Amino acid sequence: MIAAAAAPLADTTLGQAADAFLHRRDLDADTLRSYGQTLARLRAALGDGVLLSDLTAEHTAAVFAEAWAQAAPRTWNRHRAALRSFTAWTAPRWGAPDLTALIERRKEDSDATKVIDRHLIEALWQRRDLPLRDKALFRLLYESAARSVEVLGLDVSDIVPEAKRGRVRRKGGATDWILWQSGTARLLPRLLSGRTSGPLFLTDRRPGPARTPAAVDLCPVTGRARLSYERAEYLFKQATTPIDPTGHGYTLHQLRHSRLTHLGEDGWSSSMLMALSGHRNLRTLGIYVQPSTEAVAAALAEHDPGRRRR
């Protein structure tokens, strides 16, 4: 840890500034979680008591080199963006320096293979070894094209099973409906098993006394807690490792990406896709609806003048 020098009481520490930054009301849950991860690593490495005036770009660059040197470019850039936001927020308040001055943005290679093939997704629904909760979660995520944090934040009281919809808080704070199809609708009654309140998706076991979550994240019937994003991501990677050519398993975000791509290939308009997914900007939607290699190959084959016709 960096030793905090003697300073007037008016001086602000890293811990105080981080707490104030993370308690802003304009941060949605997803952004808050991401920023919190970055600042937690900085606080653990540098110490909550270090004064902002004592921090330098060299200190934060060293933390990044130790923590994320081997991380993927996208992960590195995400933590860098979080630190840039923190610096931009603290600078006009306490005169904090630019803590990202020595942390360069890494080039992200575009990956045109991230869409999961339709046949692999369909095979996933047919698997008999998947627990009911996991299959319901994965299917709801795909059919609704919703963000993972939105679906995991659902309570039983938020869903209207007969209408195949659920009320969520979108990125940015707006309240909206997500929609699903019959595949999810057939699984939810079995998942609920008579529950009328509490989180929709629950952990396998009750939390220990030292890790008791907030009451809103506990099921009053089973005593189990709301399933976390990290655990859900792990479960999906484990479930899809056998079908992923890389052998690493797919991510929950790829379900959303794949759904929007598949619907785009099927002729859905941009406005319909935005209404389903909760996007508010055509530019951000565009990266999800590029036709897959398989779809382009099929279209070329269909219009190949040398193709043999039956």
Rank of each mutant, 00 (worst) to 15 (best):
M1P: 14
M1V: 10
I2T: 00
A3R: 03
A4I: 00
P8G: 14
P8H: 05
T13R: 01
G15V: 00
G15M: 01
A18C: 02
D19W: 09
D19H: 11
D19V: 03
F21C: 07
H23D: 13
H23A: 13
H23T: 15
R24K: 07
D26I: 05
D28S: 03
A29T: 09
L32Y: 01
L32H: 11
R33G: 02
S34V: 11
G36A: 10
R41G: 07
L42K: 07
L42E: 01
L42N: 08
R43I: 07
G47H: 09
G49F: 00
S53L: 05
S53E: 14
S53P: 04
S53W: 08
A57F: 04
H59M: 09
A61Y: 12
V63I: 11
F64N: 06
A65V: 06
E66V: 03
Q70P: 06
A71K: 14
A71V: 00
P73R: 10
P73T: 08
R74C: 09
T75V: 02
W76Q: 02
N77M: 06
R78Y: 01
R84I: 14
F86L: 08
A88Q: 12
T90A: 15
A91R: 15
P92R: 11
L99V: 08
A101S: 02
R106D: 04
S110P: 12
T113M: 05
I116F: 05
H119I: 09
A123K: 09
D129H: 12
D134C: 04
K135A: 08
R147S: 07
R147W: 10
V149Q: 14
V160W: 13
V160S: 07
A163L: 14
R169C: 09
K171M: 02
G172E: 02
A174G: 00
T175M: 08
T175Q: 06
I178G: 05
W180P: 06
Q181C: 12
Q181P: 01
L188G: 10
R190C: 00
L191T: 08
S193H: 15
G194R: 09
R195D: 00
R195K: 03
T196K: 13
T196A: 03
T196V: 12
L200T: 04
F201W: 03
L202R: 10
T203A: 15
T203D: 03
R205F: 13
G208E: 07
T212D: 01
A214F: 08
A225I: 00
Y229H: 04
A232G: 06
L235G: 04
F236L: 09
G247F: 08
H253P: 10
H253A: 11
H253S: 04
Q254Y: 02
R259S: 06
L260I: 04
L260C: 05
H262C: 08
H262Y: 12
G264M: 14
E265W: 13
G267K: 00
S269D: 15
M272V: 11
A275V: 04
H279N: 10
T284F: 03
L285E: 06
G286E: 15
I287Y: 14
V289N: 13
V289I: 15
S292I: 09
T293L: 13
A298N: 13
A299E: 15
L300W: 11
L300M: 12
L300R: 14
A301C: 05
D304R: 11
R308M: 12
R310M: 13
R310Q: 10
